[in-house]
């Protein structure tokens, strides 16, 4: 998240709602370690990444729903073999667990 601070603060100063998605756990092979983070603002602008580009699109959609209040902050799992996973997967075959929540603290 270190690398996101400047953008987050620029958005905060512009009064934007912000959601942050962070990798909290990885099973098997994963492109980014726990702590990898991306931030999404209410306009759909994005900084940072949580995978090698495989799941970022779906994370943005999820983050926007959470910002609109359609969904609660939650753990989301991306993986190739799980029925509950999103339609997108990781090409490396691993599973990543993300926590997505609004930056309200």
């Amino acid at each position: 998240m270190r690398e996101l601070l400047n953008d987050i603060e620029r958005w905060q100063q512009a009064g934007k709602q912000i959601a942050v998605a962070r990798v909290v756990d990885i099973e098997g092979s994963g492109p980014r370690d726990p702590g990898a983070a991306m931030a999404v603002n209410e306009d759909g602008e994005v900084v940072g990444s949580v995978s090698g580009g495989c799941v970022e699109g779906a994370v943005v959609a999820e983050a926007l729903e959470i910002l609109r209040g359609d969904k609660q902050p939650r753990l989301v799992k991306f993986g190739y073999s799980d029925d509950e996973a999103f339609a997108v997967g990781l090409t490396c075959g691993g599973i990543i667990h993300l926590f997505i929540a609004p930056l309200t603290w």
Binding site: M1, R2, L5, R74, L75, F99, A101, W105
Partner: peptide, 27 residues
């Protein structure tokens, strides 16, 4: 909390950011 966190990270003060990700008080 965020500004305290950002200030510590920028000043290279070691800090743990702790978040409830499941259970009561999520977030």
């Amino acid at each position: 909390l965020y500004s305290i966190f950002a200030e510590r990270v920028r000043s290279n003060i070691p800090v743990a950011l702790i978040t409830v990700i499941d259970g009561p008080n999520i977030g």
